[in-house]
């Protein structure tokens, strides 16, 4: 159904700045950028963006604030690859509280994490 059609431009891992959030790659050779007023500024070459620090997020729209050589611009998150991470969800405490289904593989059913209960 789907094939790889686009190229991916990416920053070598060794070049990624330690600690700070930054643009690590793009999915195209140019990326649309916007001003802080959300007006489109045009297309930036990927090479100019890759490695630039992400200095925040626009509260009203979720766009990424990126500091470039030409100043801070806004970029759509899906247009770039980043090293942004999220907190993992809390670990689940598995509690056995009774008989589970012997008919379900490994005690799971339907992707509900409660598969560990009673298995």
């Amino acid at each position: 159904m789907y094939l790889v059609t686009g190229c991916i431009l990416a920053l070598p891992l060794s070049a990624q700045a330690a600690g700070g959030k930054q643009i690590t790659g793009t999915f195209a050779e140019t990326v649309p950028v916007y001003g802080l007023d959300h007006k489109r500024l045009g297309q930036f070459p990927a090479a100019e963006l890759i490695g630039d620090p992400i200095v925040g997020q626009d509260a009203g729209t979720g766009l990424l604030k990126v500091r470039t050589d030409k100043g801070v611009v806004l970029v759509k998150p899906a247009a770039v690859q980043t090293n942004i991470t999220s907190a993992p969800p809390a670990e689940t405490a598995c509690v056995k509280i009774g008989p589970g289904s012997i008919d379900q593989a490994g005690g799971i059913s339907n992707n509900l994490g409660s598969g560990c209960h009673g298995s």
Partner: peptide, 15 residues
């Protein structure tokens, strides 16, 4: 990410 970037790159910025 790629799907949004390829198919909806021209979507207006919305709140």
């Amino acid at each position: 990410s790629q799907y949004i970037d390829h198919v909806y790159a021209d979507q207006d910025i919305i709140a």
